[in-house]
Design a protein around this nucleic acid. Structure first.
Lengths: 211, 211, 211, 211
DNA sequence: TTATAATCGAGACGGTACGTCCGGTCTTAAT
DNA sequence: ATTAAGACCGGACGTACCGTCTCGATTATAA
């Protein structure tokens, strides 16, 4: 997606190698739409006002302008959620333990951010019900994130800091799963500071008492 | 909820200590409705036919009969999902490790069951967007399940099989979170046999290599 | 309405010549129902609360009690309107002119009565749409009234007070029609005192100026 | 009502002096709706299929398209009935007697027309129960017709062909009332040819025998 | 300069579902 | 057998949203 609308932006036809004709798409509309969705969600429009009709109204935009950019509500919402994932999180890092803590801390912070939390909850709720859309999100966003964890773990294995007799996927879930479970299920009780370290260290050390 | 409609059943007015008047609610309708929802979901009606209108049609029931029992779609779906949680899972158990494996295995099996998986995914997707409904589900179903894990862990702590320098809530997430993450996010790729043991043992032993 | 179910009252099965069994119909219910209808109509319930549901509620009666007495709403309303026609109007009379005035005056007074006017308007509106019910009303109530006019006119013809070269039906309409038109169409503007005499005399004398 | 939808047409917002925006209302829908109502009524849909739902279905139109044009069923039906009154009836005329005959003959013909008769009966039945709607109909349609009669009569008075010692309103009812009474009450027994002349002449000459 | 053309906000289009109400029937326990 | 109460199925009510379509107006490039 290299068009005028950056990654995460609306899906441009992308055709017409160079000689585009007619009035170009309004960048202002792009912004207004995405901002309207975020505003609506933050205002608690759990699902009520989150209709294409309401979004168009809130953005001061015609409905056709929405449908010209996205094929439907799910695609729009998916793009909105993607637009919040821009901030590249990971880090090269010193030790494997610190890399893992950094990754989980990033996850935690995002789960805390009012905007991101509400958006994610509301949007995923919509999107997850559409298997194809969800799959696309999975393959573009989630897989990337997961790969970051896998890379760290594989590096740890190579260095001998992580046991090598388990599948990487399972190990990754051991670290990421607990944080996700808290963020997705426990509404927003907490995600207290220090949770990342706590999870990483406990999983590393094990739950059995050590002498 | 100890009335004629068992836990998981429709929300009975519950009034009238004994001298109930008027024609009683039809148990056949109760059954037909819940079965219709399950059937529709299994048939893949991800969200399309999952309308009160469609449910009533599929159940051969008037819409009023639905609204007499539940205040809205979410409440109905919530009850349906609850009706799938009847099978008490846990186990007294011999060792703490075996108890944990049993709990996770139960989780895994349910995640695999075609019916439960589809229902849960579809329904939670609906329900989670309604904070109040979700909260109620959380407090009646999730809390109970979580408590079972907590009990096992506390027993383990008392016995010295589980380290006592971590909060029980965090430890519980370490075990349950990975399985949930897989079940909820990875569509249904796997949940392969042996996953429960793998998770429990790895979390118990830790991820660091042991000599 | 002399018996519990007199002519004009609810349509009793009428079977069982003598040996009726079981609990007898409640006369209180009969009264309550009819009164409820009249009350609702007078209160302006033009058509809104005029539902079987609302009538049963207002009468403090079960719906089945209504349907046990009348086959449907129209039959009930028809009976109510009939119950207002009990007061025998006509008069033997001295001169034909006075008889006609008396008949029209009777019509006028009834058209003025708040109760009768509102009921008639509301009910006929319902009833007229059901051809069979309307026909029955026509044949039992309207025909009788019309016959009274015809009798007077025929007497006048015999006496030489009324021209005999016109059909009686047409002549009857000449007298009754104007009053009805006012009563039915002009909402309730007036029907002023003296209207009956005015109509009768003008129709008798003719509209052409007399020398 | 001078907008794009002529008298008898749907109630246009009428706002926006010139710069109308958005897609304009479909004239095809206008036609389809009115035709559907007429068709349904002619097919005998006394009141059963005469629902907004049924009308929309029969017209191949969304329900919203109905409610965009009329606030409710009564208003729609009222407009339909108005659309049948377009054919200007009266006539300048030679003698007062002939003018009156022409007016009544027009009334008679309309009462006979299958379409108009059925529509009028069914529709007025609906509309009359809503006082405000009825009032509007009265003031727009009935008053106009009545004024035509009044004009004829006043001309007759000026010419000395009509007695001047009666109120015009009463005289008008003497001519129009009989025809209306027949048309509205006698289902459709007749309205035989020559009725107009018969009424006019008899009312003019008077009912008393002449020497 | 003038076409040509894609965009814009606005809003109507045919459908479908919402949650409520009523019609007419049926089923309770109580009288 | 009838009572009041109320549940039953069906279906209409009027509203809202979906995704498409048509308006007149705007804003670009291409001729």
């Amino acid at each position: 997606m290299t068009g005028p609308s950056a990654p995460g932006g609306p899906s441009v036809p992308e055709a017409a190698g160079d000689g585009r004709r007619g009035r170009p798409r309004s960048a202002a509309a792009d912004t207004a739409i995405v901002e309207a969705v975020l505003r609506l969600i933050e205002e608690g429009a759990s699902i009520g006002e989150l209709s294409m009709e309401g979004i168009a109204r809130a953005a001061g935009v015609g409905k056709a302008t929405l449908y010209r950019r996205w094929p439907g509500k799910n695609a729009l919402l998916l793009d909105v959620v993607r637009s919040l994932d821009d901030d590249l999180p990971p880090a090269p890092g010193v030790s494997v333990r610190d890399d893992l803590v950094a990754l989980l801390e990033h996850l935690r912070r995002r789960g805390l951010a009012k905007r991101h939390s509400a958006v994610l909850r509301t949007v995923l709720t919509h999107v997850q019900a559409q298997p194809d859309v969800w799959r696309e999100y999975h393959e573009t966003v989630i897989r990337a994130r997961r790969e970051a964890v896998h890379a760290v773990l594989r590096r740890g294995m190579a260095r001998g800091e992580i046991r090598a007799d388990r599948e990487v996927e399972v190990l990754a879930d051991l670290f990421v799963g607990p944080m996700l479970a808290r963020a997705l299920i426990d509404e927003r009780t907490a995600l207290p500071e220090g949770l990342a370290e706590q999870i990483v260290d406990t999983v590393l050390e094990g739950v059995r008492p050590r002498p």
